[in-house]
């Protein structure tokens, strides 16, 4: 197999890695916000439930969570949802791992939403009470204060920890190969098994590295954009 063929084969896997990455961000970033608000709620039961959920999700390895999501419908309800989706999509469109990708996506979105929620909570709680009071005495509503005064200050503070988490995310997508999702590492392992090629496995690192490089530049830009004010 030529270098170009290997690259193209691995790239197909990286598309799946990127898909998991993108969907997790797209859904996880907004989903983290209600979780953060629940964990700051003054209504005790809501707060406790949110804290327990975050504790469990952060307390169990992500790989295990993928297994749980994937196997639980079959084990508990005798309805192997994700393998059924697998089979259905394969018969219709010829893609073999759609159901497993779905299971991975669910696990990732929940997991990352919980991590994000803690970053949001930290960011929101770090804004001084006096900023709210300055808004109150000007006759603004709670909503206006949050949206127009607090939010951007929170965003500025959470960009560095969020960048960190997002960079971790692209590498975490490798965990999807635990249920045989054809992401890039799985593709490389496939080459090792069928073509006795070991170097593509190491070559995958370049894909991650380049992608993380792009992310780093992007976050640098965002930080710079928010550099015009200090709080």
């Amino acid at each position: 197999m030529s270098f170009l063929e290997v690259t193209s084969f691995l790239f197909d896997g990286f598309v799946i890695s990127f898909l998991i990455f993108a969907v997790t961000l797209l859904l996880g970033i907004p989903l983290g916000l209600p979780i953060a608000f629940c964990s700051m709620s003054r209504f005790k039961p809501v707060k406790i439930v949110a804290k327990v959920v975050v504790w469990v999700v952060r307390g169990i390895p992500l790989m295990l969570q993928i297994f749980i999501i994937y196997y639980v419908p079959g084990l508990l309800f005798d309805y192997p949802l994700f393998s059924k989706v697998d089979r259905f999509v394969f018969l219709e469109w010829g893609i073999s791992d759609a159901g497993r990708i779905l299971a991975v996506l669910i696990a990732f979105v929940i997991n990352y939403a919980c991590y994000f929620s803690e970053i949001y909570r930290g960011g929101i709680e770090s804004i001084s009470k006096s900023q709210y009071e300055a808004g109150y005495v000007l006759g603004l509503t709670k909503k206006q204060i949050f949206r127009k005064i607090i939010l951007l200050q929170v965003v500025k503070r959470i960009v560095p920890p969020m960048s960190n988490e997002i960079i971790t995310l692209i590498k975490d997508t490798a965990l999807a190969n635990c249920i045989m999702v054809c992401e890039i590492i799985k593709q490389a392992k496939e080459l090792a098994a069928t073509k006795a090629l070991i170097w593509p496995l190491f070559y995958t690192g370049v894909f991650y590295l380049l992608f993380v490089g792009v992310l780093t530049l992007l976050f640098g830009r965002i930080e710079k954009k928010l550099d015009y004010f200090r709080s």
Partner: peptide, 19 residues
Amino acid sequence: RQNRLHFGLVFQNFNLFPQ
């Protein structure tokens, strides 16, 4: 909120909006 509009308050630490 309406009541607050009758009063203005200048704080010890200014509390301007940094952004």
